[in-house]
Design a protein around this nucleic acid. Sequence first.
DNA 1: TAATCTATATATAACGA
DNA 2: TTCGTTATATATAGATT
Lengths: 72, 72
Amino acid sequence: MGRGKIEIKRIQNTTTRQVTFSKRRSGLLKKTHELSILCDAQIGLIIFSSTGKMYQYCTEPFRYIYIYINTL
Amino acid sequence: MGRGKIEIKRIQNTTTRQVTFSKRRSGLLKKTHELSILCDAQIGLIIFSSTGKMYQYCTEPFRYIYIYINTL
DNA sequence: TAATCTATATATAACGA
DNA sequence: TTCGTTATATATAGATT
């Protein structure tokens, strides 16, 4: 989806990989949200970047699961 | 992304909602996989349809988490 | 770097069989 | 209902700023 077609394999160039991560992560979170709203689905999504940063999206029931796990 | 633009709100028609769920769920799983490969990210995704069916994608570390939770 | 830009690839809404 | 098909909307790769 861009000026060129890319193969689905680890991007070797660090800068390119980080830029792609930022763009695609944003797109994935958006589509996750849309699916949950459009189709009334319950979704939990957690992403860890290769540098260890965490990003997440979750609908209500998944929030309870996280709270449960954290209070074990 | 289609013949018409749609609003992001719960789809009222059951058939349309199920068709959309099937298509978008598939797209979301694909993009999740691509992000994990391209950017070497660890991702856990769980989707429950409104009828209770579960779908998931997870990279290795998340599989360990599931096993841990299931053996608690 | 970190934002924009934009040409192209991809996803998908509405149909049709 | 469950597949294709295809016109259109959207995401994004690479370039530019």
